[in-house]
Design a protein around this nucleic acid. Structure first.
Length: 654
DNA sequence: AGCACGCCGACT
DNA sequence: GTCGGCGTGCTC
């Protein structure tokens, strides 16, 4: 037989191999197969097969799965993701069936008939050696032997093909504060678990929000709560895998990889804070897990509940189009910050910082705690020589440098370069250096000096990787917390006063979504830290009006109107096409080719750029807007197959 | 992606 | 005359 294999390489076509005809029963759609490719062995996925022989084709080395591991709805989901994200099936499948999914390692054989009694209770590896694959497969298919996993002792059977009859499941977008959200989650989860179903819940990270929900939900549901993801040890992860795949009554928590997890009797998917960047996958293929989860709920006919203090604009738009039921608990409207809101504007950060000290001092002396938000985690950036006014730029790429005082190093935000900081100007030798932007490290140092008698702590900006330290204020002593985004996930912390230092700089940082980002940051800080008063410290020249961000419904409507007028998402889809070449000439040739591919579709006027950036390589970036009609999609596929060209779907930072 | 091939310029 | 950087094309 001829087997068409989807390989995990950035090439959209499949490759064909031959396999012996008697493998027929085991060659199934999306089963993992080992195949020779160049001079190596790759794990690919069966994308199709047919009768016949072809002496010019190489042989499939082996079929790695006894039966398909993906359920039919998950196979649909993978196909949908491959299309939506313009990624080869093999690359999506590699993510859905990752190499760290070591199922075989934990399987054993259970004998159900005399013929296979010698294999009873034998580890799978050993059984394969003693009987051979064909014989074992024969036992399995006739039912004289079954597999079970050694971690739970339960049967390991082929993935079910039935879809749950959830036809009337509700799809809800819930906008509410953390305590109301939590109540909703508790109620929803118990309802579904009581019916003997499983619930999947996506969380934006493992160490912060993940730890919080894992802990609080475990108090309610005990060992019914499982976490599935690469952050936990293999054995525990596989135990969760086997449990939710076969049993029911579980709540499985996860971040990104769990969206493709096979879940038996999945009747509800919960997504907490769908707007978070932590859901964006950067390795393998770029996707956002809430986007895939929404589609999964659709395909599996499961309920969907998206909960957030500040839902993404996409979700709000979906709700407006009646694809989600919008429930707003109006929590923001019930809180009144206005009369206590202070805006402080000044032209230099030095003057602003003195204002911060004054407000902090006043609050601490009243016996209340303070949190200070800033968008930058470093000590300082935009470094400049006071003598000759020349900026310190990256010697490699001319990019902006950020200074980390703890390590004494400069890092380049553009090319990720890393250099030792010398307090001397490269141009004039002057040694009075200043930063025109300062970050959390600087503020921490400054406030530690100003308030030696109070605890001053910084919430690490390296969110995601490290556990956010649970804050234990000594006794009832007030404290100062300084941090970036992770501050908004400290649901256990309450401060009386929240200071935002340079919050408006987010506007400069992240493209067409900048206002949306400012909104999410502000609202989530209010949600988590429950401050009673709010202070904004702004550069006078960049002043923005906070009130605009505090009226949620109006903010969404304004933002959507602007997006619609400018033809931006969610009203059109965006595709970022990047060309990276060593030489200018080859790059320009690739750009020309890409443009030609889109000229045929009369789409060239949607292109902007190219932008030339000199680094280690020459880069061109082009943005295409479009809907996913077949011709546009076909052009994107053709572009995908050009070497050194990457296509990013739904880019967040344009 | 990863690799071989083949083209050029550089240098013991 | 040989080494190595880089562009091109191919992988069943």
């Amino acid at each position: 037989m001829i087997v068409h294999v989807a390989l995990p390489i950035p090439v959209t076509k499949t490759f064909s191999y031959v396999a012996p005809d008697d493998w027929g029963p085991y060659v199934r759609k999306y089963s993992r197969v080992a195949v020779p490719f160049h001079d190596k062995t790759l794990t690919g996925f069966v994308a199709g097969f047919e009768e016949g022989v072809n002496p010019r084709l190489k042989q499939v080395i082996e079929v790695r799965d006894f039966f398909p591991l993906l359920t039919a709805p998950l196979a649909d989901l993978v196909e949908w993701a491959s299309h939506y994200y313009v990624a080869p099936l093999g690359i999506v499948l590699k993510y859905a069936l990752p190499s760290n999914l070591h199922i075989e390692r934990y399987l054993s054989v259970r004998s159900n008939a005399r013929s296979s009694v010698a294999l009873d209770n034998m580890r799978l590896g050993k059984a394969l050696k003693s009987t051979g694959k064909t014989a074992l497969m024969q036992y399995l298919s006739e039912g004289s032997a079954t597999l079970f996993d050694a971690l739970t002792g339960g049967d390991f059977l082929p993935a079910g093909t039935t879809v749950m009859n959830n036809a009337n499941s509700e799809k809800v977008l819930y906008s509410g504060d953390i305590s109301n959200r939590f109540e909703r989650y508790l109620h929803l989860i118990s309802t579904h678990l009581d019916k003997g179903n499983n619930v999947m819940m996506l969380l934006p990270d493992y160490f912060s929000a993940g730890a919080y929900f894992s802990r609080t939900l475990s108090e309610a549901f005990k060992d019914r709560v499982l976490w599935y993801g690469s952050s936990i040890p293999l054995k525990k992860r596989m135990e969760a895998y086997f449990k939710v795949r076969r049993d029911s009554g579980y709540l499985v928590l996860g971040n990104k990889s769990s969206v493709f997890l096979p879940v038996n009797r999945l009747s509800c998917i919960i997504v907490e804070r769908d707007e978070e960047d932590g859901y964006r996958n950067e390795e393998g293929f770029k996707f956002s897990s809430p986007t895939i989860a929404i589609q999964r709920a659709e395909i599996e006919r499961a309920g969907l509940f998206i909960g957030s203090a500040s839902p993404s604009i996409e979700s709000f738009h979906r709700a407006q189009e009646k694809r989600l039921v919008f429930v707003d608990n109006q929590w923001l409207r019930d809180r009144h910050y206005d009369e206590r809101m202070h805006e402080v504007s000044a032209a230099s950060y030095g003057a602003l910082l003195e204002e911060v000290v004054t407000v902090t001092k006043r609050t601490l002396e009243r016996g209340e705690s303070v949190a200070i938000y800033t968008p930058r985690k470093d000590y300082g950036s935009f470094i400049q020589c006071v003598e000759c006014k020349k900026p310190f730029l990256c010697p490699r790429c001319e990019g902006t440098l950020n200074y980390h005082k703890e390590t004494g190093r400069l890092t380049c935000s553009n090319c990720a370069g890393d250099f030792v900081f010398e307090e001397q100007c490269r141009h004039c030798g002057g040694n009075i250096i200043r930063f025109s932007r300062i970050g959390a490290e600087y503020i921490e140092e400054h406030l530690k000096n100003a308030f030696p008698q109070y605890p001053v702590a910084r919430v690490s900006g390296d969110a995601g990787k490290k556990r956010v330290k649970p804050l234990s204020p000594p006794g009832r002593q007030p404290y100062v917390l300084i941090g970036t985004q992770p501050l908004s996930k400290l649901y256990d912390v309450h401060v009386h006063t929240l200071l935002l230092f340079g919050w408006e700089d987010i506007r400069q940082m992240s493209g067409y979504r900048s206002e949306e980002k400012m909104f999410h940051v502000l609202i989530n800080l209010l949600d988590a830290l429950t401050p009673c008063e709010l202070f904004f410290f702004m550069d006078a020249r960049k002043k923005v009006v906070p009130a605009h961000f505090l009226d949620m419904e109006r903010f969404y409507k304004d933002e959507l109107r602007k997006r619609k007028n400018a033809d931006f998402p969610p009203f059109t889809r965006m595709f970022l096409i990047e060309v990276v070449k060593r030489t200018k000439e080859t790059g320009l040739a690739a750009v020309k080719k890409i443009k030609e591919l889109l000229v045929q579709q009369h789409l060239v006027d949607h292109a902007t750029g190219p932008l030339l950036q000199k680094k280690k390589a020459y880069r061109w970036k082009m943005i295409f807007k479009g809907n996913d009609d077949t011709t546009f999609y076909q052009s994107l596929l053709n572009i995908y197959d050009i070497p050194d060209v990457r296509v990013e779907v739904d880019p967040p930072n344009i």
